[in-house]
Computed example of a mutant assay.
Amino acid sequence: MTPAALKWTKRVLSIAKIEERRDFQLRVNGTSPQHVTRLLREMQAGQKLPAVKVALVDGGHFLVDGFHRLEAHKRNQEQHIEALVAHMDLKQALQEARLANTGHGKPLSRADRNAIWEAHVAAGDHRGPDGTLKTPRVLSAELHNILSHETIRQRLKKMGLEDELEPVKAWGPAEPDAAALAEERREEADDLVLRLGSLLAAMGDGEDRREVLEALRGVVGAIEAGEVPAALTDLPATYAAQLGIE
C-alpha cells in the first residue's frame, strides 16, 4: 500500500496516547523550539493548526506528521488534538513519516534533506516494485522536490548506478545533448530561486534578511562581472544550509 492509498479518518485523540518515535522524525536536530513557539503563539491568537497525522500500527498510535504541532499543543497544556489516523504497517509508517517532512512545515536544512534522501535509499524506495531504478525526475517528485532531479542523478551516479540511469533507447542519442543539460541546469536554478524566495518571505524584515539580501547583491554583481561569487560564503550559516550551499 502506498501513502496515496491510505485511508485517513479524522479523529480527536488523547495526546497521552500518541507515541513519538525518533526514527519517524527525520529532521537532524529534531523539533525547533523557535518554530514550536511560533505555532504556540498562533494557537493562542485563535488560529487553528492543521491536524497531525497518526499511524495506527498493531494497536499503537504513532505520530508520522506534526511533531512541532504536537509539541505546541503540549506547551499549551492541551489534552487532546485533532488527528488524521490511518492503519498501516511499520514500513508504511516510516515511509509516510519520511515523505511528510518534505511537503510542508519548517523549511528543511541541507542536513535534513540529506537524511531524508539517505533514508529513502536505505528503505529501497529509489527502486520500483520490480527492482528497477526509478528515474531522477520520479524520485525528485516523490520527495516533493527537496532535491532537484539533476542533484539526484549525480547522487545515483556516485552510488555506482550510472549504468541503470535512464537506459538509452535505440533511437535516442548516447548522451544528453548540450541543450538538454542546459535545460536541466535552468530548472535546478529556478528551483533554488523559488526556495530562496520562500525563505526570504518567512524571515520577515529583520537584520538577518537584510544581510542575506546584501550578500545576494554581491553574488549577482560578481556573476555579472564574470567573477567567482565568493560572497556566498557570507550568507548566515542557517540559510546557507537551507539553500544547500557549502
Rank of each mutant, 00 (worst) to 15 (best):
H87N: 07
R69L: 05
H80C: 07
Q92V: 03
L70T: 08
G103F: 00
R110N: 14
R155V: 01
V64I: 12
L56F: 15
A123N: 06
R127W: 03
R110G: 14
Q95E: 05
H104G: 12
R41M: 11
H104I: 08
I81H: 05
P129N: 06
L156H: 09
H149N: 15
H73V: 09
G46T: 05
G103M: 06
I81D: 05
D125W: 08
R98I: 01
T151W: 00
R75C: 07
R113L: 02
G128M: 11
K53V: 10
K134W: 03
H68N: 09
K106G: 08
Q77M: 07
E150Q: 14
L108R: 04
G66A: 02
R153Y: 04
A51D: 05
K74L: 14
K48A: 15
L63S: 07
R127P: 00
S109L: 12
E162M: 07
F62I: 06
H87Q: 11
L39K: 14
N101P: 09
H80W: 05
H68V: 10
Q92G: 15
L56N: 10
R153H: 08
E42K: 15
G160P: 03
H68S: 12
G124E: 09
V64M: 05
I116R: 00
G128N: 11
M88Y: 03
